[in-house]
Simulated scan of single mutants.
Amino acid sequence: MLLVTLPAVVTLHLWQVSTHAIPRALVHMVADRRPLRRTPGLRFAKLLGTGSGRTFTVRDADPRQWGLLAVWDDPIAPMAFQDSGLPARWRRFADEEWVAHFEPLSARGLWSGQEPFGKPRPRVFEGPVAAVTRARLVLRRAARFWTAVPPVSADLHEAPGLRMALGIGEAPLGLQGTFSIWDSSSSLNAFAYGRSPHTAVIERTRQEGWYAEELFARFAVRSSSGTIAGVDPLGPGPR
């Protein structure tokens, strides 16, 4: 009998809250871990703080914006989750919610010792794509990493084809990541491999061994709903 393995379904929730609701969001970042572990169909999940990603230090953090990155066994599980208690509780006090669904196109590396997005066979996708980078820093080398980041981040935010870029992390320091959305694979490739600030940092990473663990993944963007900071990054209109 031939067993067919369905590709992972990846979702990202982003919630924006008012200043007075920040303490409530912080409570949820701790309290929601247990119910997440009991969620049917959930393979992997990380509750995330977000920020500008300009320096990957605590001064980048945006305490008004929080996220949940999740990997699911099938397309039905995230649909059921969206109507469940955890997102509903966030919606009670969040000013905005943005939810996007992705399909992995490629993935390399580990996150908390796991391969959360599996091992998809790399392929071409015509349409908007998303990218996640994530690393656990070697702490004694963190200072060199932080000095190298600002030129790359400044270049990222000016890159043609970029729709959205966030810093993401499970902790204020030492666990660094980015989430970005691009018009196309070609625009993402142009930034990743064709712009000197980024390629220079890639070379330094190899030479200096900044990371104890790292992961790079890209995704086909399948759908999105809602807004964050007043816009849908995948919606029509100027960006």
Rank of each mutant, 00 (worst) to 15 (best):
M1V: 05
M1T: 06
L2A: 14
V4A: 11
L6S: 04
V10S: 05
L12G: 09
A21Y: 09
A21S: 08
P23W: 05
R24L: 02
L26M: 10
M29Q: 13
V30S: 07
A31G: 06
D32K: 00
R34K: 03
R37Y: 08
P40D: 13
G41D: 11
L47T: 03
G49Y: 01
T50K: 05
G53S: 04
R54M: 13
T55Q: 04
F56N: 06
R59L: 05
D60A: 03
D60F: 00
D60P: 08
P63A: 03
R64W: 02
G67V: 02
L69G: 09
A70M: 10
D73I: 06
P75C: 07
A77E: 05
A77L: 07
M79S: 12
F81S: 01
S84W: 09
L86C: 06
R92F: 03
A94F: 00
V99R: 02
F102Y: 15
L105A: 01
L105S: 09
S106E: 09
R108Y: 15
G109P: 07
G109N: 14
G109V: 11
L110F: 12
L110T: 10
W111T: 04
W111R: 09
P116K: 10
F117P: 11
F117C: 08
K119Y: 08
K119N: 10
K119H: 14
K119L: 14
V124G: 04
E126A: 12
P128I: 10
V129N: 10
A131C: 03
R134S: 15
A135S: 15
A135D: 03
R140P: 12
P151F: 09
D155C: 11
L156N: 07
A159L: 09
A159Y: 02
P160E: 15
G161F: 09
L162W: 04
R163I: 07
A165I: 07
L166H: 07
G169N: 12
T178M: 06
F179I: 06
F179C: 12
S180W: 10
S180L: 04
I181G: 05
I181C: 08
W182M: 04
W182R: 07
L188F: 06
A190R: 15
A190N: 12
A192R: 09
Y193G: 11
R195A: 03
H198K: 04
T205I: 15
E213Y: 06
R218D: 13
S223N: 09
S223R: 13
V231D: 01
D232G: 01
G237W: 07
G237Y: 07
R239K: 10
